[in-house]
Computed example of a mutant assay.
Amino acid sequence: MKENIKILFEHYLAGKTNPEQEKILMDYLADPTNADSEFHETMEKTWAKQANEPDYSATAVEGLAEVWSKVEERQPKSRLLFPFVKYAAAIVVIISASLGWYAYKKAQQPIETGISFLSKTTQKGEKVKLILPDSSIVYLGAGSKLTWPSHFVKGSLRNIRLEGEAFFEVKHDASSPFIVHSGQMQTRVLGTSFNIYAYPKDGTFSVAVRTGKVKVSESNGGKLKQLSLLTPGMKLLYHLKAHGYAISNGRITEVNAWIKNSFAFKDVSLPDMFQSLERYYNVHFELKAHKLNQCRYNATFTNKSIGEVMEEIRVMSGKKMKYKIDTANKTITVWGEGCQ
């Protein structure tokens, strides 16, 4: 049996196993009684065939993305995400070998201990400041979710996952690149400050850089494609469905303006603006006139109540847009003849 498992493990790393064989392998590895020295020796020999440097290739990153998805599938509602449920040891062992973490795992901790993760989800109208294990700072926007490991390993990738919006102030560490995974998009830095907008339902993804340099890539079908290197003042806007993107230069002060309750919109349609305002102010919009869908605005709202924001939008529309705020139900009904 053990000999078959060793062969199966080697085939797995070579990408030659089918789902049924992978299940057999994970069932075996998930059993703590099977974590014997013979298997470790097999892993060590297999690892010796790999490159000595950590693997940052598209294949390795894609493998890590699978781990992230399994973490999210199995996580409880509480903040602390304990080691994976059934296949914890198996997943960690296999991905460790693929990503270049095996040497550390073998020397520092038992392989079967798994990985613990922390997670924070904000509600509409809420934003929080988080400090990661490496002292990097994250400002998490409304209606967003951040997931990160309980500790980072020196010399290995600092991988975290974001759904929503966040501004990052990353502590510089040339030996440990910091990578933010947002759906099929990946943002990689060494130490810098930047903003990511990645709400899955919006269909758009953006990265805006305040300091340092950021590399943005797209993961598609297991292949990692670099889109652009961004420097201070640059912003990349990516359309998920069309797989197209554009790069612009903006004002650095707008990158993280929302942290100080300043919301900037540039050539944004009214429905898209309302979608963002719903998150920022924890309200719900009901747009009753289709003509208003074509209205586009440039606007910045700083320390304004939602009532003040709506009044400014009404004025910008040439007073053709009308609205009614239902405070009790946190609902804003909008109608009108169009825009100016």
Rank of each mutant, 00 (worst) to 15 (best):
G164C: 04
V138I: 14
Y139F: 13
D134P: 01
G143P: 06
L157G: 08
A166L: 05
W148R: 06
S135P: 06
I137P: 02
P133W: 09
S150Q: 09
L146W: 04
L162S: 04
L140M: 13
L162M: 07
W148Y: 15
G141K: 07
N159F: 07
L130P: 08
A142R: 00
I160V: 15
G155I: 10
S144E: 04
S136W: 00
L157M: 10
L130E: 14
N159V: 11
G141F: 01
V153W: 03
D134H: 05
D134A: 10
R158L: 12
N159Y: 08
K154N: 14
T147P: 03
S156W: 01
E165A: 05
I160F: 03
K145A: 08
I160K: 01
L130V: 09
F167C: 12
E165P: 03
L157Y: 02
A142G: 01
N159S: 14
I131H: 04
V153E: 13
R161E: 15
E163M: 01
G155H: 04
I160L: 14
K154E: 15
G143Y: 04
F167Y: 15
R158K: 14
L146S: 02
S135D: 15
F167S: 12
S136G: 00
D134G: 05
G141W: 01
D134F: 08
N159D: 15
A142K: 02
H151D: 14
L140C: 12
S135I: 09
R161N: 14
L146R: 01
E163Q: 05
S144N: 02
L146F: 05
S144D: 04
S150M: 07
L130Y: 06
L140N: 11
D134I: 09
G164K: 01
E165M: 05
H151K: 09
G155Q: 07
I160G: 01
L140K: 10
K145E: 15
I137L: 10
Y139G: 02
L132S: 09
R158Q: 14
L162C: 07
R158G: 11
L140W: 08
K154Y: 09
L162P: 04
F167L: 13
L157H: 01
A166T: 08
L157C: 05
L157N: 10
L162T: 10
I131T: 15
N159H: 09
I137K: 11
L146H: 03
K154D: 15
H151W: 04
S135A: 12
A142I: 01
L157A: 11
I131G: 01
R158S: 06
I137T: 15
L130Q: 10
W148Q: 11
E163G: 00
K145P: 00
G143S: 14
T147N: 12
S150D: 13
V138C: 05
L140E: 13
K154Q: 14
P133R: 09
S156A: 10
Y139L: 04
E165Y: 03
A166W: 02
P133I: 13
L146Y: 03
D134Y: 10
W148K: 07
P133T: 14
L132Y: 07
L140D: 13
G164P: 02
V153P: 07
F152E: 07
I137E: 15
